[in-house]
Design a protein around this nucleic acid. Structure first.
Lengths: 129, 129
DNA sequence: AGTTGTCAACGAAAAACTTCGTACTTGTGG
DNA sequence: CCACAAGTACGAAGTTTTTCGTTGACAACT
């Protein structure tokens, strides 16, 4: 079974995807309003982006209503996986360890977060078959 | 004290930076040869890229010899930090934890690597001031 | 029927990135 | 001095990404 992988989204596309992940299926108007909380942008710009993203397969469109409703094709995790994989190859020579160390060094994490990571670490080490 | 941060390199630029990190200061010819091991590309293309990267401040150029010698302006770690920070903001809502978990899930790491990570984790938790 | 507001579609322009041909320079060997 | 090899500079074209103005459709309201 062949799994179609998400094309790597650009930064702008990612910003839109993040809105859709947060709000669920939404119209251009909704995405536009939400996006404008953070950054000024034109309505037709968002519309065009969503049209292009539809062509690329990043989102799907329900045209049954006059205002089309867009939803993401891939889960947030799928895309994150894609992006991490890309960065891993391009910048870290494929070493997840280096990336992780860098990430932990880059941004302080709370004790809770560190505990979460430790937990996963235990599973990975312990659950070794 | 103003810290000049590296502009985010594109994928192509990153490929060149990686050669320079690996080999140290090098001429266009050297970078070109090295790059062509993996992917076919033209000599003047590499030259042009290095010229542009010089303008952007990603590399510096020693023109004292006829064949100019290029070297990176920023360390591999500095750029990795920049890229991780970028991805963190754009795709993970700033949560290093999520990125780490994703990275560990994306690619299997060896026990040694996991141990390394655990070590850093201990330092971060223990070295709490 | 006419006006108004909302929407999708389209195309064009701008910006960023990538590639490479061509021209000019300089050093080397004949 | 001439030809050739290796190098840099430059500009142009191709590609991708981003932005937005304009147009036409459609519905609601008067």
């Amino acid at each position: 079974m062949k799994k179609s992988l998400p094309p790597k989204p650009t930064d702008t596309e990612l910003a839109i995807l993040r809105v859709l992940w947060r709000l669920g299926p939404a119209t251009v108007r909704t995405v536009f309003d939400e996006l404008n909380r953070a950054q000024a942008t034109g309505y037709t710009t968002v519309l065009k982006m969503l049209q292009i993203m539809t062509e690329k397969g990043l989102v799907r469109r329900d045209e049954s209503e006059r205002s089309h409703v867009y939803e993401t094709t891939f889960s947030e995790q799928q895309v994150q996986c894609q992006l991490v994989g890309h960065l891993l190859d391009r910048a870290f020579g494929g070493s997840a360890q280096k990336l992780v160390l860098q990430a932990l060094a880059t941004k302080k994490s709370s004790p809770q977060e560190l505990a979460e990571i430790r937990k996963l670490l235990n599973e990975l080490e312990g659950g070794k078959s």
